[in-house]
Design a protein around this nucleic acid. Structure first.
Lengths: 211, 211
DNA sequence: GAGAATTTTCAACACCGTGTCGATTCCGTG
DNA sequence: CACGGAATCGACACGGTGTTGAAAATTCTC
């Protein structure tokens, strides 16, 4: 059961569908999605504009398919840390490093897919499923730690959502303004920030009374 | 020196410009910006479509003006906390509460203006200025605390950026999926999350060694 | 490997929103 | 009241979208 929409046979024309997806991924690296015309996409895959509609209902539908394909990769990045226990700072950092690399490569359309407010129903559907899933996995890890008697800093579901969003928005901003960031510093800071966000102790108010 | 673009006199037709802005704010509450047609905007302000172009060069230009107008309000929300010292949890929470209220009212176009990856050059310009300014103020507060000898959790500029982004993305998501959030819980958690992010101690690894 | 069935391709068309131009009307000022 | 700039609008050209129907290519069946 393919996730998006099942056109019929396992025939040969499906190569074209994949060609279209590959071409799109390449084209989306250079231009924002709204600037890319369907004519361009079709051309890059070697077919006429009207031929595009045989494979996808719209640009958004194609993007949704693209997002769906990348699902597996994204899951894998965080799998190690999500499966581990305790802080496991190193595993977390490794996962974030992989994520940053992915964003450096495909940031343009990842941004459009994941943080655009209203990316059309098709994309919205897939991406909501994806982030819900991500948050839920994160949340489960937190709950696991909480059950093991470790201090956790708030309602797991909410904290998880914030952590996941913090990660996306940080990567997105790092993609958008690369000059403002030093990569290693960014990864270190983000790793610690997430750990502090999830497991950190509240800062001691006493330390902050006036000098 | 008006920020956006100075058309001439303080004449009477400027009322129309404001009417256009007000109408736009109302219309943008119901539909996403790309769904709103210029014809609709003009109609809502009582002029013909082509008349719109006398006042603004495009939909994006109008949105930029809208953002620019809201600048002052947003600044005020956080002013109290930004001016204070130490944790001042209550002031922070008050600021966030005001922010959430603003997002509840104008979330639709705030989202489009502030978190859309590529909102056209006009909007991009104004909004980048705004978030840079916000981050910088935040950063200054952190540096001030650091100078006063308080523990701070990382490079002030980076931490500030993360905190500011965490706030936006949380409000944006709360607007997009209101049913998933309890408002009070959200505000409490966000307040603590920011404080932990900025001033929190790293979680003690010892506490996390296996049971 | 020929013919039928079906998949794939594409040119032509209708549609919609944008932005521009120039003619026309409005309105305050000398 | 007449002059000049401000404001308004209809008509046009343009570009991207999505649809349709017929032709070409591919696959299937015997």
């Amino acid at each position: 059961m393919p996730a998006i929409k099942s056109r019929r046979a396992p025939t040969k024309g499906d190569q074209r569908e994949q060609a279209l997806l590959d071409a799109a991924r390449a084209v989306f690296r250079d231009k924002s999605i709204s600037q890319v015309t369907i004519d361009e996409l079709a051309g890059a895959a070697g077919i006429a504009r009207s031929g595009f509609y045989f494979y996808f209902e719209s640009k958004q539908a194609l993007l949704a398919a693209l997002v769906d394909q990348r699902l597996a990769e994204a899951d894998l990045e965080m799998a190690e840390w999500l499966a581990s226990d305790g802080l496991d700072r190193d595993a977390l950092r490794r996962g974030l490093t992989a994520g940053l690399a992915r964003w450096k490569a495909d940031g343009r359309w990842l941004r459009e897919a994941f943080i655009t407010p209203d990316p059309g129903p098709e994309v919205k559907h897939v991406r909501d499923r994806l982030v819900d899933e991500g948050c839920s996995l994160f949340s489960k890890r937190i709950e696991r730690d909480a059950r093991a008697g470790r201090t956790v800093a708030g309602p797991p579901a909410l904290i998880a959502k914030m952590a996941v969003h913090l990660r996306s928005i940080t990567f997105a901003d790092a993609y958008a303004h690369p000059s403002q960031y030093d990569e290693d510093e960014l990864l270190d800071t983000l790793t610690d920030a997430i750990l502090r966000l999830v497991y950190g102790d509240a800062p001691d108010p006493a330390r902050f009374t006036s000098p």
